[in-house]
Amino acid sequence: MPAEPADGGGSDLISFDGVPNCPVYPWWQLSPIYRSYKKGDPVSEFIRDVMLTNETSWGVVVNTFDELESVYLQHLEGKIGRGRVWAVGPIVPSGPTTDRGGSSKVVATELLSWLDKCQDNSVVYVCFGSQVVMSNLQMEVLALALEKSRVRFVWGVKEPTIENSGSEFGAVPPGFEDGVAGRGLVIRGWVPQVMVLNHRAVGSFLTHCGWNSVLEAIVAGVPMLAWPMGADQYTNAALLIEELRIAIKVCEGRDTVSNANEMAQAMADSLSENQSRKARVLELSRASLNAIQLGGNSSNSLDGFLKELAGLKSVNNSS
């Protein structure tokens, strides 16, 4: 395990030579669990043992598909054992999506009606998942970027939780919604994300790069603007930007305040430039849908996993 930089330098680069493509990350982007490890500490050692036990698992089921991460699935097989890694994704919601999730101040049918009036690939969808609540300063800069970009947009805003309640989080700047009326929608609370991403009007997605959001965007064939903020999101963003080339980075870090002008330009460009990025994500979209069809790689992988489980049950019943 790489040691913490002696000078506390959070920007020191840490490499993982045993992983394909040798990923490199600044120290501060590593998992907090990883960074907080203290040799000899009982809690740290317990967590480390639990993590390492994953490599001795009988098998692993992964929400991904071969065309997306084949080199990493092969690497995982080398750790777990051949035939013991089942890629069964993408697992995303299917069927009606307008009545899923929690509360929202916008009726899904009204949102759909608004999108129907927009031109193809003319809307930037902005959402940072179910956990991130942005600071008011971040909200101000993002609102300014949306205003400067002149693009049409749907902005899903998570309101403050108990952990970050008060006046410093999640506030849409006063007057912003009036200033962008007709061009943008601000939705407080839950957004029917799958429905939005699959609408013909949505041309790009500003996202925190959580894995569920990543897969939903890929299935929908929507390129991404990446703002990873923690956990696995830096790894996901690196995959999207550097390897798959279906996203560009506009910011990174949970507490970082972006440059409004640069973000505005990225939003505008995401709808008007780089057709190759759109072509690549559409190719992955087709591959993802083929993977889960009957006879596809993920469908076959799921069947194989179920047969393995059935075989284990038969052995247990006979013993």
Score class of each variant (00 low, 15 high):
residue 56 T to V: 05
residue 147 E to I: 01
residue 19 V to K: 06
residue 93 P to F: 06
residue 166 G to S: 02
residue 148 K to N: 07
residue 251 C to A: 14
residue 5 P to D: 09
residue 157 V to M: 03
residue 136 N to V: 11
residue 225 L to I: 13
residue 112 L to Y: 05
residue 80 I to D: 04
residue 10 G to D: 11
residue 191 V to I: 14
residue 298 S to R: 07
residue 223 P to M: 12
residue 188 R to D: 03
residue 23 P to L: 09
residue 26 P to Q: 14
residue 227 W to Y: 03
residue 53 T to Q: 12
residue 82 R to S: 13
residue 161 T to W: 04
residue 274 N to C: 12
residue 219 V to D: 08
residue 180 V to F: 01
residue 123 V to C: 12
residue 268 A to S: 15
residue 239 L to Q: 14
residue 283 E to R: 10
residue 307 K to D: 15
residue 289 L to K: 15
residue 282 L to Y: 05
residue 302 L to H: 05
residue 35 R to D: 10
residue 92 V to Y: 12
residue 152 R to K: 13
residue 235 T to K: 00
residue 71 V to K: 11
residue 142 L to S: 05
residue 228 P to M: 04
residue 18 G to P: 06
residue 189 G to Q: 03
residue 89 G to L: 11
residue 265 Q to D: 13
residue 76 L to F: 08
residue 271 L to R: 07
residue 128 F to C: 11
residue 140 E to A: 14
residue 312 L to H: 13
residue 114 W to I: 08
residue 81 G to E: 01
residue 92 V to R: 01
residue 276 S to C: 02
residue 69 E to Q: 11
residue 294 L to H: 12
residue 76 L to C: 09
residue 205 F to D: 04
residue 300 N to F: 02
residue 180 V to H: 08
residue 219 V to Q: 07
residue 297 N to W: 07
residue 94 S to R: 14
residue 207 T to C: 06
residue 199 H to A: 08
residue 177 E to M: 07
residue 248 I to Y: 04
residue 220 A to E: 02
residue 128 F to V: 05
residue 60 V to T: 15
residue 293 Q to G: 12
residue 264 A to C: 06
residue 117 K to C: 01
residue 97 T to H: 11
residue 268 A to N: 14
residue 245 R to W: 08
residue 130 S to T: 15
residue 149 S to R: 10
residue 285 S to V: 04
residue 10 G to I: 09
residue 262 E to Y: 04
residue 169 F to T: 09
residue 57 S to Y: 05
residue 95 G to L: 00
residue 319 S to V: 08
residue 18 G to F: 11
residue 119 Q to G: 08
residue 199 H to G: 06
residue 297 N to V: 02
residue 148 K to G: 00
residue 102 G to E: 06
residue 203 G to A: 04
residue 13 L to V: 15
residue 19 V to E: 02
residue 259 N to G: 12
residue 181 A to F: 09
residue 305 F to L: 15
residue 265 Q to K: 15
residue 72 Y to E: 09
residue 22 C to W: 03
residue 15 S to E: 13
residue 290 N to V: 07
residue 287 A to S: 13
residue 163 E to V: 13
residue 12 D to K: 14
residue 185 L to G: 02
residue 113 S to L: 09
residue 125 Y to D: 01
residue 170 G to M: 09
residue 204 S to H: 00
residue 223 P to N: 11
residue 160 P to I: 10
residue 317 N to L: 13
residue 116 D to H: 02
residue 152 R to N: 09
residue 168 E to L: 15
residue 233 Q to K: 01
residue 293 Q to P: 06
residue 171 A to F: 10
residue 291 A to E: 01
residue 79 K to R: 15
residue 147 E to C: 00
residue 219 V to I: 03
residue 281 V to Q: 01
residue 309 L to T: 06
residue 260 A to D: 11
residue 95 G to W: 09
residue 41 D to A: 02
residue 309 L to E: 11
residue 264 A to H: 10
residue 315 V to F: 01
residue 141 V to S: 07
residue 292 I to W: 04
residue 72 Y to A: 05
residue 50 V to D: 01
residue 34 Y to A: 03
residue 229 M to D: 06
residue 106 V to Y: 04
residue 316 N to C: 11
residue 84 R to N: 15
residue 250 V to G: 09
residue 113 S to Q: 14
residue 39 K to E: 14
residue 99 D to L: 12
residue 132 V to K: 04
residue 300 N to V: 09
residue 169 F to R: 10
residue 242 E to T: 05
residue 188 R to H: 03
residue 104 S to Y: 03
residue 16 F to S: 03
residue 272 S to F: 09
residue 93 P to Y: 13
residue 170 G to D: 02
residue 212 N to Y: 00
residue 279 A to V: 03
residue 55 E to F: 10
residue 12 D to P: 01
residue 142 L to Q: 05
